[in-house]
Design a binder for these strands. Structure first.
Lengths: 201, 201, 201, 201
DNA sequence: AATGAATGAGAATTCATTCAT
DNA sequence: AATGAATGAATTCTCATTCAT
């Protein structure tokens, strides 16, 4: 990595810490600069402005996420097993990156301009991957066929985001992986008992 | 309603509109005051400060929500049917209160101090109600017994919140009730086909 | 005058003093506010921004100028005599308002956006008045007929502006009215001696 | 010209373009450096600071002006004719150097520190030349004797500066040489008709 | 000699809150 | 009770200048 790239990483890391502590609006460039051991002006050599710095955060983090996820999926067979692994890794990743979790879930995801950023686009590879697994499950016949795979994906991501968000709002006072197994169960079979009627979509 | 109470309602309604448009930080007391046809100072006669005004919003709205929900649940039998109704009403309520939806989902829910407020507590009746229905379902034998009812509730609320949040972030460009039926289906039976194996929690 | 109008005048007066000392760019709102004994924020209740405050200066001053000039022209007959009076009053006014002179001549007159402002338009009454006198002079037959009155007016204003500007740049170290008489002479008869040939325009 | 001298010229030319576009305060060293295809630091090898660069502009330009003027005055006889030529050349020069005109007339001439610079002194040869012509005219008897030659010179320069400044402020939308002849006329004979009385200074 | 990354002082502007009327 | 003028702290971003390479 070039010297410039390293310094950029240092600034982004400081930004994650500060933004996660105070939120976007209550974080100051001065604080980020201090934490990164650079002058305020230096930040503006690397990022257009405060918002640009903010939205630059997930780009790198998401690359890391996808790269590692791929490793964890190696050698796993069957869509169900893969989805279980995705659920586990998702929770594991945010458990081990709580600062980033706060920034992403409580600030970024909810921001007006987020969907327009290149940041948002950086999630594509992961969501595409998940979609592919779901379709794999359909072909295997283990994933229901009467609901669009997009909706299925939405369900999974929705639950995961909610689990992480709740954990953050509760002050990270319990283990995020605690209910990992149960979550998988619920995702696959819902809240109904086997006795529960099943209506076609 | 007393004259004071009416004016308070007018201010809260203006606050909902303004906060929903700009978010908490980018909304100004002046704008809210103008919309409510009062002077800035007047707002401070009814609310301690900007944050107090902000967190006062859901209290009334939640009462309305619970009251109406109860009406809609009248005469419905069976936990499954009741949960379906809750899902429908939840989506219906936010579809018809999009300003409030934005404020609650994108701002409030994600705010650091929210869990500490009386506002947060105002949700209790509703979440309790949902828990009761889930336990009713257990007794009926239609809701699975191997997962804690709290987790089941979390799953339902997580999905619903996510559906609404996504709709807001996509600019409310489709009908929120569109997938109402499919969501119920997924909540009950998960993404797995009937062929999918079932592991005990 | 209302209380608001008085405070506005106080701010403008402070602005004249500060801008005249440092120029537009090197003047700060803090300094103007201090001199006016108000908080910075107060200035923004009366003026949109720094530039708006800047360009608000001549509006009042010009009214004063025109009003007084009219008084001085009372009872004077003959275009020549009137023009002499205009020249005298012009120099007299800036001699007695050197701060304003600096602001107007060295900053405002030369500013890119000045011509677009309402400030610029406030000069119209005066320049119109001068044109009327020139045309009066034509009818009397004392002003030459072979050059457009607009050009004649430009000549007069050009010389006057230059005299004042030069005086300012030389540090106001001499009496601006010193050459008043000679300037009038030159305006009427030019630099040529009576022997000098005269070519028709 | 040495390599250094050439690079200095390139920087000055870029400076003229940039300063003329944005004014002194709103021009940046980066922009000038980019236009000159050098690094910012390089500029500081040739000029002490931004102001030094700014005030270095007229030195070269004025040499050029005087040199060319001398050529144009060759073979012209009579003070009147020479002054006419000076007027023409003055307007011609700024018409063909509008960037420099803007910088000199709207920025430099009006700047606090200008009179103290070596730049200001570089005008001396030209103003001396004009004074000499005026005195030549006196001896010829074609220039009036009752006003100091310094004042006469001031009148000429004042009108010329004003004509150029006005043209710049009007967006250079007409031909600067348009009124060249009329200006000469006015300089020699003033605005009065031959009938106008003449009072001795 | 040339570079250009790093610096950090400096300033306009916003806005929640107060308080005299 | 209602007003709205006044406050002033707080923060982003710019850019001339320096200096290590």
């Amino acid at each position: 990595m070039s010297k410039k790239a390293i310094k950029k990483q240092i600034i982004i890391q400081s930004a994650i810490e500060v933004f996660s502590k105070n939120g976007f609006q209550n974080s100051t460039i001065v604080e980020i600069a201090k934490k990164a051991n650079v002058a305020e002006g230096t930040i503006y050599q690397y990022f257009k402005n405060k918002e640009d710095l903010f939205f630059s955060i997930p780009v790198e983090k998401t690359k890391e996420f996808s790269r590692e996820l791929e490793l964890h999926l190696q050698g796993i067979h069957g869509a169900f097993n893969k989805i279980r692994k995705v659920i586990w890794y998702y929770l594991y990743f945010f458990k081990t990156n709580p600062d980033y979790a706060r920034t992403l879930m409580l600030e970024m995801r909810v921001s007006k301009n987020f969907v327009k950023t290149h940041s948002y686009k950086s999630f594509k590879p992961f969501t595409n991957r998940l979609l592919a697994i779901i379709e794999e499950g359909k072909e295997e016949g283990v994933v229901r066929n009467d609901v669009s795979p997009y909706l299925l994906r939405q369900l999974i991501l929705g639950i995961l985001e909610h689990i992480v968000t709740r954990w953050l709002l509760k002050g990270e006072r319990y283990d995020l992986l605690e209910h990992c197994h149960a979550v998988g169960e619920l995702v696959f079979h819902g809240i109904g008992s086997s006795k529960g009627e099943r209506v076609s979509g």
